[in-house]
Write a protein that binds this DNA or RNA. Sequence first.
DNA 1: TGACACACGTAC
DNA 2: GACGTACGTGTGTCAA
Length: 897
Amino acid sequence: MPTLTLIDGSGFIFRAYHAIPHLSTTKGIPTNAVYGFTNMLLKALREHAPTHVALVFDAGRRSFRHDIDPEYKANRPEAPDDLASQFPLVRDVARALNVPVIEEPGFEADDIIATLAGRARAAGWEVVVVTGDKDFAQLVDGGLSLYDPMAEASGRGGWTGPAEVEKKMGVRPEQVVEYQSILGDKIDNVPGIAGVGEVTAAALIRHFGTTEAMLARPGEIPAAVSRGGEKLRDKVVANAERIRTNRRLVALRRDLDLPFAPEAFGRRPPDQERARALFSELEFSRLVKELPPPPPTARAETPETIDGRAALDAAVAALVQAGGPVGLLPVLGEGPPRTAPLVGLAFAGAGRAFYLPLGHRYLGAPAPLAPADVREGLRPLVEAALPLHAHELKAAAHALARLGLARSGPGEDTELMSRLLLPTRREHALVDVARERTSCELPRNPADGAKRGAPGLEGLEVERVAAWAGACAASLPDLAAKLAEGLEAERLSPLYREVERPLVPVLVEMERTGILVDRGAMEGMSAEFGRSMQDLEARIHAAAGHPFNVASTRELAQVLFVELELPVVKRLKTGPSTDQDVLEKLAEQHALPRLVLEHRSLSKLKGTYVDALPQLVDPADGRIHTTFHQAGAATGRLSSSDPNLQNIPVRTELSRRIRQAFVAPAGARLLSADYSQIELRILAHYSDDPGLLQAFRDREDVHTRTAAETFGVPPEQVTPDQRRIAKVLNFGIAYGLSAFGLSQRLDLPPSEAQGIIDRYFTRYAGVRRYIEWAVEEARAKGESRTLFGRARTMPEIGARNPALRNAAERTAINTPIQGTAADIVKIAMIRVHDALAQERRAARLLLQVHDELVLEVPERELAPVEALVRREMEGAARLKVPLEVQVGHGQTWAEGH
DNA sequence: TGACACACGTAC
DNA sequence: GACGTACGTGTGTCAA
């Protein structure tokens, strides 16, 4: 027997919109309603597996009900913009899933559903109406039930049959219309009778059966209800016409003259390709994963596996001769790209793809070519002037470097390009980027999703890896072209061409060079810190009266707030906080918190740095090689990991000892050059604030100047405390500091903090204008940009939730400043690197720490390299104020400051 | 045992 | 809820 599922599409869009507060793509397209709707639709299809299905929408805002009562649905506001924009997307989803859509101008979805359901029932079909609207209860019978996937998801039972109707409403399904005529419907602006609720309405209908019977025999009303019958009778009689009107409004029409029959809605399987493309575009990554994998569309002309020097020479010659762009894909095992096992190398162009196995390790794996043959065989390709594209060029360059080859020719980095286009997205895997930009479905990485202990890529057969890697390499030329168009369209090409792309070889060299560490010093500190911690731990246990795990915030909270009964200063989700601020306050009342602070400090330094760093020293050269992430941060800053060398401690005396373990080799010095107040200078530039501009042009102490302006005293009378406050203010302004934040930080009353901020903005009106401009700009354009055109989308800038919106506004204030600083430092790195090469210096860039560059410089080059670095850094950008650089050098990184 | 969230802390 | 951007460690919980 056929089964028909009818889905109340309009109802669900609104419900999904309100149930899911905020969801948007990284480009800022709102998707909350379409996401909820899609989930609902998929769930409904999964649950019922109907033979026939249709999705029904309202079309137009008027129906026959408006002629009956002009007030009908008059309370319904226009859909907000961020919902209306999703209506077409919902139809796209339906199309992709091959679900027929019905909408008939002048008819409401409810009546269409009622009519179709009636016809299907008459033919003996079973019907399910997927809805959350109780109005449909009037349709329920033995073969028609209602299903609400959202109610079921929240555990409230999603199915409604005759028994459920009677239980919930107190009347039988065929009485629902009568019942609702009395009760009205708030949502549709159908008024009920004042003072008559669900219980009374149900009692009346149980007694009379219909409203007409009730209106014919009002005398029986007092007997039908438990109390207040006299008054109720008068109200019903007075509202007789209202009840009759309501009946015409709430009764669903089952007799519409529709030009289609249920038979037309036979179910078809989803259009996989379309669904995949759409869900990817909408960034529904979970739903993409749930779709069965499609057949790969990338026809990389079965890659040729290279089995000898002659084959390699022929392949390379063919590609060099063709002269077109070549895609390069190193196949790497686990670990950072600089050292990960090099399993093989795929390269493709001119319609051909090749795979060169280099490190497959399994029984019967073919022996790789001799290293010299690999190197010399690849050399003509690597040294050719043709473009060589890669998805993460830095990793490809590391791979080539390990084969003894240096690449300096042209070529795009498709990962970097994709990251510039979507800087807040974390993952930019090639298969995803290729699907999105070129609609090409690459084969899955054969090692992906493997369980731990299962062989990685190096344990897989050459042919399997070749098929995958060859297809990936072959996709790169087209993809690079598409991404270049995207960058052009988003006005990001100059940033990519002049800053990001040229930075790649600089970072490759920095990672390869690494920084020398004094392992002995680290290991000595480890033992020393360990002893101090043990000593502190004993004293902490004594103060508590019993041993406990000092590192456990939960156990510590138990000791502090339950056993010692100290006051709770700050609460977190899971209980009272024990962070530094809290312990500082508690230290005024008890000795234990101070000891814990000391213990924490040592534990942090030992665990994060002193113990971890020596393990990451490369035994080959005694140096630590971090990995820089060129577009890992949303603002454009670099980040660093494995290890993170951008958060090595500097502030306390003890922590400076860690910097002392970063050293220069004999005959060389570490040189540290950092931009002075770069972010504040950028704020001066953006804001055009005369006071701020003047402070930098006159090379004044900017914090003292701010203090003088804010507190209304001459600069020479600024007290250290006033300067301290001004410093916090100067740092905080660019982050969107609030009075609350300032009061917390300075331990002042909020009113006083507010006064300081008010005075600051009076003196620095330009800064206030910058803040307003930054927020307004982000709201108008949906993105923030840096001076060099780097863009970051701001999807939540228009959010109705004030917390989300405020956070987005602070981001909009900060991003142009932090991002412009990042741009300038990147430009400086390229300039310094190029100038060192130009002057044939042996000095090398080692690290970048946001506003600081660290170099290793042979002693004899110190003076000229210091001048070079200062010149190139200060000249990296021309702002309305000069850029200043402070340089220091010494045997260790600590002395460089 | 591994994956994950949380709290915390380091840098700029 | 309250100041932006990162990464790493240890604890604790949950599921396999």
